[in-house]
Design a protein around this nucleic acid. Structure first.
Lengths: 116, 116
DNA sequence: CGATAATGATACGGTAGCGAAACAATCGTT
DNA sequence: AACGATTGTTTCGCTACCGTATCATTATCG
């Protein structure tokens, strides 16, 4: 199982995948929002607003707003850290997992048609 | 040269790449804009507003606006079709090619670190 | 020619994002 | 208890995007 891509293949993969993503009626996420969502689901918890802001290199309100939007879409959930009630712990949801699963399917699907 | 990805690998690849893309100071493109840009540079010309709108499944103003923004960034250029002056031909630029080249570098770079 | 169709741009009202700054709640330390 | 530090949210003015509808220009067909 190798992942070595040529530059052309890499771009073609992204082309097909973003195309399918845009064409689909899936929630229209910003690149930042998508990045946040992937981070929450692929990096071991816990995730906080401050932590996400520093790793993404953006300001805190960006994270708050993204969590608002994606929370409304049901992709993510907030809860207070009971041990330090200043912190907000960002948690995963079933819908969020399904969304990313669909994204993964799109990518491998397009990746498969790419093999030369 | 194989491109077979596991679902997990695919998502991790996108995670790292979108992260790098967000962290970088590169122009902040919408997912739609990125898709348009990739399409222009990876699919053989000519490209028109109407053609892009139908392939992406979006309305024409979306394309016009995206071309406005990316034109200001120098990533893309418009010119009239002299054979049918109703058409606008969308053309590539050096800056646009450099932008995508950088994106390709990021993807293969992250893809390389992914090999297990 | 005149009418219709086609193409891309624009106007409009509304929504959502942005950075900077100020804010409320909580913790830690004294 | 009181101060300052930390965390996340909110506010502000602004910019950019959205879909729908309309417009201007050009082509095509009768």
């Amino acid at each position: 199982m190798s992942v070595s891509l040529s530059p052309s293949q890499a771009l073609h993969l992204w082309h097909s995948a973003t195309l399918r993503l845009v064409q689909s009626d899936a929630p229209d996420l910003t690149l930042r929002q998508l990045s946040i969502l992937l981070h929450i689901y692929l990096v071991p918890p816990p995730h906080t607003v401050r932590g996400l802001a520093t790793t993404l290199g953006v300001t805190k309100p960006v994270i708050t707003r993204a969590l608002d939007s994606m929370g409304t879409m049901g992709l993510v959930r907030r809860s207070r850290d009971e041990r330090d009630r200043r912190n907000v712990i960002i948690q995963r949801t079933v819908d969020g997992a399904l969304y990313l699963e669909k994204l993964g399917d799109i990518i491998i699907d397009e990746g498969r048609e790419l093999s030369l």
